[in-house]
Amino acid sequence: MEGLKVSDADLAVYVQPSKNTKVPQAVLRELSSLLFKFNEAFGGVVLAYDVQIQDKVAKILPGLHPYFSVRLKAKLLLFAPKPKMLLEGKVVRLTETSIHVIVLGFSSAVITDEDIREELKYKMKHSKELYASRSHKHHVIKVGTMIRFLVKSFDEEILHISGSLVPPNTGSICWLAKNMEDVSLRDRFYAGLFI
C-alpha cells in the first residue's frame, strides 16, 4: 500500500525537572503524544516510532520553568497519503450513494457515487447491501471487504480521505488479486507462443 513511509528524525524532547529520575519514561510519554495526529514537521500522521537517546547528559534550559532538553534519534513510521496514491481499507458501511472505508484502523475514507465506476452497481441481496460488477460476477464489494482505492484528497485536520473506484486497478482486493493472476498467466501463455 502506498502512503506509508519511514523517516529518520533528530529530535529534542523537553522534560520537566520533576521527571529527572524517569527520563526514558518521560521521553516515551512525550513521543506517544505525537501518535495518530498529523504533524506538519514530519509531513504525515505518526503511526509508530523507534527511539535512541543520543546523549546521556541532558541540558537544562533556563527560564521560569526550566526543562531538561534530551536529544534523540528516532525512526518514524508515517502515514502520508497524497492524491493519486493507491490505498487499501476495510468497508464498514454501504449506501446507494457511497462506500465508507476505514484505512489502517484509524482513518476514515468515503467514496461517493460519482467516484464509483459505472460497472459497479448498488444492490440488496438477502437483505444485505453490496456493490456488484455487471461484467465480472465475482467482483463484489460488501461490508467487511478489503478494497483498493485511489486517493482524491486527504483532510489532514480530521484525517479523512476522499477516494475513487473509477480506475480499473481498484476494487475488491481478493478479486483484483485473482484477476491480475489470470491476466499475467494469459500474458505469459501468449508470450510463450511467440518465442
Rank of each mutant, 00 (worst) to 15 (best):
S18H: 09
S7L: 13
K142A: 12
R29P: 02
L77Y: 02
A12V: 11
P168N: 10
Y122A: 11
A80Q: 11
S7E: 12
D55I: 07
G105S: 09
K123R: 13
M180K: 09
A74H: 01
S184D: 04
S153W: 07
F154K: 08
Q16C: 08
I158H: 12
V110K: 11
V45P: 00
V151P: 03
S32A: 09
E114N: 12
E157I: 13
D115W: 05
I141E: 00
S135E: 14
L47N: 02
M1H: 10
K128S: 13
K73T: 14
G171F: 02
V23R: 03
K5F: 09
I102G: 01
L159C: 07
P83K: 10
L64V: 08
A26D: 09
V57Q: 15
T97W: 08
G171H: 06
V101Y: 01
S18F: 07
V70W: 02
A9Q: 08
T21A: 06
S184K: 10
F36N: 08
F154S: 01
F36T: 04
K90V: 13
V92D: 07
L77K: 13
I195Q: 09
K56W: 06
M124C: 05
K137P: 14
K84E: 12
L130C: 12
D187P: 01
Y49R: 06
P168W: 05
V45G: 00
M124E: 14
H136G: 03
K37P: 01
W175Y: 08
E181F: 03
K84G: 02
I116V: 15
R93F: 11
K121G: 07
E119I: 10
R188V: 05
A48F: 04
F194S: 09
L87H: 04
F79D: 01
V92N: 11
V92Q: 13
Q25H: 10
T95C: 05
P167G: 09
V151W: 03
E2F: 02
E30F: 03
E118M: 14
D113W: 08
Y49V: 07
S172K: 00
L130F: 05
T112R: 11
Y49N: 08
Q16T: 05
L87K: 00
V23K: 03
A74D: 01
F194C: 06
T112C: 09
L11C: 05
F42W: 10
K75V: 00
L4Y: 13
I147V: 14
G144Q: 06
F154Y: 15
V166W: 00
G63M: 10
R188F: 13
H126N: 15
V143H: 06
K84N: 15
E2L: 00
V13S: 04
D8H: 10
S33F: 04
M1N: 07
R148K: 13
V101I: 15
P62Q: 08
D187R: 11
Q54N: 10
A48D: 15
F189D: 11
K5C: 08
V6H: 08
N179A: 06
D8W: 04
D115A: 12
F194M: 08
F149T: 02
S33D: 12
V183M: 11
K59F: 08
C174P: 01
M146H: 14
S184P: 00
E156K: 13
